[in-house]
Design a protein around this nucleic acid. Structure first.
Length: 969
DNA sequence: ACCGCCGGGTGCC
DNA sequence: ACCGCCGGGTGCC
């Protein structure tokens, strides 16, 4: 009987019998009852211990559930029990009933439990060898406000809760020795973790899990891409986890029995191995490739997946997708659903459309043959299965029902006889009717579930990494035309679908849930975090022999997130929420070091994680291709030079005057405007806004306001990287003061509110008022483009860029480029000559919506022939995570104040996934403010770093010095 | 003996 | 359960 429980866990029919066979009135299964009881308040975060009480478990002789010393037991109300509606059932970790709580105590507990006043844990410290009754230590937990009610209620019925003990986190090693009454005081002495320590522990939970685990493994021949060292290590580890014979975490062999050191549960049968785990490598380390290698390398009996080879390497994979699906996929991605590189898939699919149907039919046929021949070839070992593999699953279910019926009928007899009958049934089921689902040889298919956004990436990667002469059946289960035939799906090598499709199918005759998969892979597995979500339930309902989670960020917030992952992996007993709460979550949240230790051990056993900075044998996992940065000096044309000199001399005189007066900071906006104009001259004359710079002799408030707005526009509109002097970060919600200094509105508002009467500008000490802060008018943000009405003209820098682009295109037409500027208007200007010379390009700047951005990035990253060769990129657009590895050449059109910004931008293409050498070209106009900017870039960097430690005065002088050297004063 | 005592049968809720 | 309880057998010491 025991072994049956083991194999089927909580949700299988076979478990029902022990309860159902005695009280047929209740349709509830035991596991459902336990689940219901335990999930009422799954979130036990705020629980406090009310007290403990020794109780008695009776009726042991009637049940098969065994308990070990120190083992935790579950307490479940049985309101339907015909003998006593107050009944409280006692079950062990695997849901096997152990007995009941003695009637009188049950009556008291029933009231507390039914009114949700407390949850009750049980631990059996001793007396486990007893035949008829045994003591159990009951702990009452609940919300603080219910504490007194519970204590009084129990006392009222003659049960006094012992409230003196300290936190008892449940069973663990400390309880093992019978006389260990010291555990309470011992526990009390441990100092709980502080919130800080706890947070650090989480952050580090997934770090340092590398330690190269179990050597390396070569991928099967059918994998076309050579694996990197760390990928071979991951493959080796994954194969080992799938084939392993080692015991799961916290299990050890003790004599004849297997013993769980955390829950103290033990069993005669070897505990079900967790076949799979979490591959939590950083993005870009090749989780997809490694998984593909796993699929091809580790089929049954550690052999590679049997694949057919074809002479001509013609479209081995992509043909499976029907045209309707391709268009569906494409449609959804252009609707902004974030599908990656769908254009690539779409394009490659198109070429195959004419033959697609035919090939599908042909393949299905072939698959049948394959599985037949494979069966006969392996027959020597696994004799005699008469049934076809595809029929195996239904047959097994029948067997199960039969077994349940058997034990059910046995229990219809009188209790006296039952004892012996039951034993007979148990033996029977172990020996004959319980199939070994774990090694079901008919399971052939790997199911991959991923977010829609990476669906096409999987298809691309299969195509890219599977040898061209290998036929691998990959079926995209997506779109309304998807083939829902279980027979068809389970004959594939790989089925790929999305979380949405899976949960849409779930509960609706889902074919995916009727198949016994060889392997289920959850890509971006961290997205199934909320256990109540339909998606999560759909994922947990899948039947599989091996289970994998791929995730770059397995923990997003807290321990809670981990439960779903462990539940999916069926890491017993933690796949049942209550045991997870008791053994891990509650102890950890309450700062119990042992609990945290257990969690760490658990995670370590099933996870492989390497980061970008991880090393193997002292070398980084992946070395990026070389990067060269060169500066290309640009000579201004005669006309440009004259204009520039004019502006420079004018500006220099103005600034010289400010310096002499000591009013540089008071006129800071003006100074910036001068610098801005010079920088714009260097790029293109049309960048210059035609406005006067003189703020001195203004009259009316309206005029003043208008000018301030113009200043502000100068500082901001062209994308300069101005920082706020209060927060030292880029300005957000910019406002300009009457003294023409720009700050973030929240920053300056705070300054004003703290200084109360007579607040002063942090930069120049002029008086400032909230009412006088000027914002950039909303309607003007849209403006733009109006200036382009004039006839387009070129500039030296434009020429320099175009020269490079044309030359490089001749050398290698596959190169993609990033063209970066701080001035979005400059990007606009560049569009004209790019169009003229037939470059296809996209543009990414800060004004674009998130949806539009992802679309543009996908277009650019796509590898199809007609994908854009150039991306016009505004320096500050997008976050650090942006992946533009399709580009290998970067043109920085103008220097930034902050060299880190430039670095960040370059890193968007010089990052994991980049296959080419990266060349960066910085255009700098000779003898100009740009050259000086480059000179002070380093100092500026130092300044930013020191800013937090330096005084305001230091910063002021630095700024003035910067300006002086820029203007060569 | 309408008791006590003995010893076998029996035993969760 | 190496208990308690029940109910039948039995009955001076």
């Amino acid at each position: 009987m025991f072994s049956r429980r083991w194999r089927f866990g909580w949700d299988r029919v076979s478990e029902v019998d022990l309860f159902a066979d005695r009280h047929e009135t209740s349709a509830e299964t035991l596991s459902q009852a336990i689940r219901a009881a335990m999930s009422e308040e799954p979130d036990s975060d705020g629980s406090v211990l009310f007290g403990q009480l020794q109780g008695t478990v009776v009726g042991l002789r009637y049940y098969t559930g065994v308990v070990n010393q120190g083992e935790m037991v579950g307490l479940v109300r049985q309101p339907q029990n015909p003998y006593d509606r107050n009944a409280v059932m006692v079950a062990n970790i695997y849901g096997n009933q152990v007995g009941h709580i003695k009637r009188e105590l049950a009556a008291a507990m029933a009231y507390v439990m039914d009114n949700n006043l407390a949850k009750v844990d049980g631990v059996v410290h001793w007396g486990t060898k007893n035949k008829f009754t045994m003591p159990v230590m009951l702990s009452f937990w609940g919300r603080e406000e219910n504490k007194n009610a519970v204590i009084e209620c129990m006392a009222h019925r003659g049960y006094k809760l012992n409230t003196t003990g300290s936190i008892s986190t449940g069973a663990n090693q400390t309880y093992n020795s019978p006389g260990a009454c010291a555990w309470q005081s011992k526990k009390g002495l441990t100092i709980p973790l502080t919130a800080e320590e706890l947070k650090n522990a989480f952050d580090n939970l997934f770090e340092g899990l590398m330690e190269s685990k179990e050597g390396e493994k070569e991928a099967a021949e059918s994998v076309g891409t050579p694996l990197l060292l760390h990928q071979k290590q991951a493959l080796s580890w994954m194969c080992a986890r799938e084939n392993q014979s080692a015991l799961p975490p916290f299990w050890e062999k003790r004599g004849e029995l297997y013993y769980n050191t955390l829950t103290c549960f033990s069993t005669k049968d070897i505990p079900e191995r967790v076949r799979g785990g979490i591959l939590a490598d950083d993005m870009g380390l090749g989780k997809t490739l490694t998984t593909i290698a796993l699929i091809l390398t580790n089929f049954h009996n550690r052999k590679p997946l049997p694949v057919e080879k074809c002479e001509k390497g013609s479209s081995p994979i992509k043909a499976k997708i029907k045209p309707q699906m391709a268009s569906k996929l494409e449609g959804s991605s252009s609707a902004g659903d974030g599908a990656g590189g769908s254009d690539a898939t779409g394009a490659s699919l198109c070429s195959d459309i004419p033959q697609a149907e035919e090939i599908c039919a042909d393949k299905r046929d072939r698959v049948e043959k394959t599985s037949e021949s494979e069966k006969s070839s392996s027959k020597g070992k696994m004799k005699a299965t008469k049934r076809k593999p595809s029929k195996a699953a239904p047959v097994l279910l029948e067997d199960l029902d039969f077994a349940a019926a058997l034990s059910g009928s046995a229990s219809d007899t009188t209790p006296k006889k039952k004892k012996t009958d039951k034993k007979a049934t148990a033996t029977l089921s172990v020996e004959s009717s319980i199939p070994d689902t774990v090694d079901d040889p008919s399971a052939r298919t790997t199911l991959i579930i991923c977010p829609l956004s990476v669906l096409s990436n999987w298809l691309d990667q299969f195509e890219q990494h599977v040898r061209a002469n290998v036929k691998l059946n990959v079926y995209l289960y997506y779109g309304s035309e998807r083939n829902r035939s279980k027979k068809f799906l389970s004959s594939q090598d790989v089925v790929i679908t999305t979380y949405n499709v899976l949960s849409a199918d779930f509960g609706n005759k889902s074919p995916l849930h009727g198949i016994n998969w060889l392997r289920v892979v959850l890509d971006e597995g961290h997205i199934i975090r909320n256990p109540n979500a339909q998606m999560s339930k759909a994922v947990l309902g899948l039947k599989a022999q091996r289970r994998w989670i791929l995730s770059g960020t397995p923990i997003q917030n807290s321990v809670k997130d981990l439960w779903m992952l462990l539940a999916f992996l069926r890491l017993k007993p933690f796949d049942v929420r209550e045991w997870w709460n008791r053994v891990i979550q509650r102890p950890v949240i309450q700062g119990d070091r042992a609990g945290l230790q257990n969690l760490q051990t658990l995670v370590k056993c099933i996870t492989l994680r390497r980061t970008k900075s991880s090393e193997v044998n002292g070398r980084p996992l992946v070395s990026l291709p070389e990067k060269t940065v060169c500066v290309e000096q640009v000579e201004l044309s005669q006309a440009e030079r004259e204009e520039y000199e004019l502006a420079r001399n004018e500006g220099r005189n103005t600034i010289r005057r400010y310096v002499a007066e000591g009013t540089v900071l008071r006129n800071y906006a003006d100074v910036l405007a001068i610098l801005m104009r010079l920088r714009q001259h260097c790029c293109h004359p049309d960048l210059l806004a035609k406005i006067s710079s003189d703020l001195g002799a203004t009259a009316t408030p309206a005029e003043l306001r208008e000018r301030l707005i113009e200043k502000l526009r100068l500082v901001l509109a062209s994308g300069s990287d101005e920082e706020c002097s209060v927060c030292l970060d880029s300005v957000r919600l910019p406002v300009i003061t009457h003294c023409a200094h720009v700050y973030c509105r929240p920053c300056i508002a705070q300054v004003i509110s703290t200084e109360q009467n007579a607040a002063r500008c942090p930069l120049c000490r002029s008086e400032i008022k909230t009412s006088e802060l000027v914002e950039f008018p909303q309607e003007e943000m849209e403006e733009e483009n109006g200036t382009s009405s004039e006839k387009w003209r070129t500039s030296s820098k434009v020429q320099a860029l175009m020269g490079n682009l044309l030359r490089l295109r001749c050398e290698d037409s596959s190169i993609k480029f990033l063209v970066v500027s701080q001035f979005t208007r400059f990007l606009t200007i560049l569009e004209t000559p790019l169009r003229e010379h037939g470059f296809s390009f996209v543009r990414l700047d800060g004004t674009m919506s998130q949806k539009r951005r992802t679309h543009v990035i996908q277009e650019f990253q796509s590898s199809t022939a007609d994908s854009p060769a150039i991306m016009l990129l505004s320096l500050k657009a997008g976050g650090v995570g942006l992946n533009l590895t399709a580009a290998s050449h970067v043109f920085l059109m103008d220097p930034a104040w902050n060299p880190a910004t430039e670095e960040q931008c370059i890193d968007r293409c010089h990052r994991l996934g980049q296959t080419r050498k990266v060349v960066v070209t910085k255009f700098i106009v000779k003898n100009s403010v740009e050259e000086n900017m480059v000179k002070i870039q380093r100092q500026k960097q130092d300044l930013v770093e020191k800013a937090f430690g330096s005084t305001n005065t230091d910063r002021k002088t630095s700024r003035i010095d910067d300006i002086k050297s820029l203007m060569e004063l």
